[in-house]
Design a binder for these strands. Structure first.
Lengths: 364, 364
DNA sequence: AGCCGTAATGTAAGCGCTTGCATTTTGCAA
DNA sequence: TTGCAAAATGCAAGCGCTTACATTACGGCT
């Protein structure tokens, strides 16, 4: 009679990554015990625990996420879909979101939709399939299928970066329209009457749309004809902003102030102005929106709308955690966006302000 | 004897998200057929396929990723761990990486390590557990455990953003040392002799370290004492860059040129110089590294090292796809980084260049 | 010593999917 | 019609994990 072969014939594990069973075998316990060590260590004796962790280390074991999700029906993973990662617009808010989730032991998965509702739908599908327990979404504009999907999959979500009282969904953000209107008011206070706007594409982007509407509203409130607003719509990017400004100055009535839908376009506009030999704000005023880092470093520094990025991220995380826990998250949250006056906005060239920028706007 | 029904009728699925079984039942086929419809449609009759897809739509079915990964042992998901998402340093490369993966039907999962090897190890673990078929990593510096993990889990990976002939691992990138040395050479050509460097933290960051060494190498090659280089090390951020420049000018021998380890710090340094009332490049020269978007929009525009972001991303994707397919990816790839001369670098104040900036460096 | 409550561990039934193999259906030639 | 290969479909065994429930071990009482 021959003795058994050196390597255990029934589990030639060496070829694949180790499983719970391998760890259990090596530690001389059952798989249940190993699982408990990993998930609820308090239920296991100190001694066993040590043996198990030693085996885990020795084998370089990492639990299979899929198997785990399948068995436990929870992933402790949240997802976030933002329109773009190419610039810092969402970075700070996302960072805060992630930090808050970390406190709850939740991992964040981030996807970007490139401002495309179709791509976003796909990303939602992907994240939900991956077992995201909850989702952070930007703005209300998306395909009906996206919402249907969220519904049938019963995935909690929150809409951020917008507060729109007309929308029924749970959201946390600020009133883009109101904020832009306030900024435009400031511009008008300084005597500007010939305005232009460089906006991001408004289709499928309620933030952009509301900001545009805010400008119109401010003009109307002063008895100005909103038709007088020259508008260029262009995708997010610095070079596009520069080109847009060029287009604006090349033909048609010259604006004395250009309101940009976001800081990226505004930075581009600044660049465009410089290329044209225009002095900002002496020859032309330019404003942004978002108050991301570049707003401070460009020359001249951008007058813009400061968005409560961090509060939004943190608040969104809290809402979602509550939602997942089956708690009542409470109503949607409106945060304040404030105007940040810097150097790129000045009085209208050669004119005197129609009325002084009074204390009325202080603290906005 | 009763016959066993194909699908168990007793489970009222309505309360949870639909499964393959629900779709099968509704379409009147087996789960196997539904699975084939989703994965290998060619194996299924046109007619059945239609019925199945109708059921999928009606139910809002989305396959459970975990279950799928468990059964198929492939996820068609790659992971990337980058040090930071807070600025655009990796954005362009990552974008190209993703685009290339898309062509192969692969989804990208991105995580950020905040420049912490420990956090990175955790992220690797998480991504591997999630079933990432392959991983993109930045630089060679990481914990031994990270490499061990990759090994035992047999997860293919590629190291990007660096080319270091001394490292055995598959990588695609450029020689940070050589590039920085070339840039420093340019600076020295312009007569600068009193140099300073603002570098990112060099621990666990071989890119930063190599760039630093590049400066030293250039100095040594000219017979200058490397000890003469003043160094400030600070975490990535514009404000840190500004502060670092302030610290540099406040005490000690005043540098006439400040080499920054990256564009973010350089943008900060520019800001710091402006605050001090210094004119760049007349009073002081400042250079960056990476050539990200802000390099072009700051005033003055940054002289920097242009990094082949997109080629790196695309190339990395190709290497990984080959690797996963069991093919030979070939050797590591060295790409060229080129010097981008803009406005922030000028001749040493009040001095004449020790030698002219000759054609010797053209095209670098 | 015998009993019992509690803590620790084991057993085994799935979770939703893929896939090798078995079975049925189809299309076509004889 | 019949026969047969190929195409289409079904069956059922897992994939690696969690967890309800069953079992065993351990002390502290009487």
């Amino acid at each position: 009679m021959e003795k058994a072969p050196v390597t255990d014939p029934k589990s030639p594990r060496s070829a694949v990554s180790p499983t719970l069973g391998d760890v259990a075998e090596r530690a001389g316990v059952s798989t249940a015990t190993v699982s408990r060590c990993l998930n609820t260590p308090s239920l296991v004796t100190e001694k066993t625990r040590e043996r198990v962790f030693a085996a885990v280390r020795a084998l370089g074991y990492a639990p299979h996420f899929g198997a785990r999700a399948l068995a436990a029906k929870r992933t402790n993973t949240f997802g976030a879909i933002i329109p773009t990662m190419e610039n810092a617009i969402f970075a700070r808010g996302l960072q805060a979101f992630q930090e808050e989730l970390e406190h709850h032991g939740i991992t964040l998965l981030v996807a970007s939709s490139s401002y495309s509702p179709e791509l976003e739908e796909q990303q939602i599908r992907s994240l939900v399939a991956r077992g995201a327990d909850a989702l952070l979404l930007i703005g209300h504009d998306r395909t009906p299928q996206s919402y249907a999907l969220l519904e049938t999959q019963r995935t909690p979500y929150v809409v951020a970066w917008v507060y729109d009282e007309h929308q029924p969904r749970l959201s946390i953000g600020f009133d883009n329209r109101k904020a832009m209107q306030a900024l435009t008011d400031r511009v008008l206070d300084l005597g500007h009457r010939s305005l232009a706007m460089i906006t991001a594409e408004r289709g499928g982007n309620d933030r952009a749309r509301h900001r545009y509407e805010g400008v119109l509203a401010a003009m109307s409130a002063r008895g100005l004809d909103p038709q007088g607003l020259r508008v260029v719509e262009t995708p997010y990017s610095i070079s596009n902003g520069a080109e847009a400004l060029g287009a604006l100055m090349q033909s048609g009535p010259q604006p004395t102030a250009v309101l940009c839908g976001n800081d990226v376009l505004a930075a581009g506009a600044l660049l465009g102005a410089r290329r044209l030999g225009l002095d900002v704000p002496k020859d032309i005023s330019i404003t942004g929106f978002d108050d991301i880092e570049i707003a401070e470093i460009v020359t001249p520094a951008l007058t813009t709308v400061h968005v409560p990025h961090r509060n939004m991220g943190k608040g969104a995380a809290r809402l979602l955690v509550a939602l997942r826990g089956g708690e009542d998250p409470g109503p949607s949250v409106e945060l304040e966006a404030t105007i940040k006056l810097r150097e790129s906005l000045g009085p209208v060239p050669g004119g005197s302000p129609s009325r002084p920028a009074g204390p009325r706007y202080r603290g906005l």
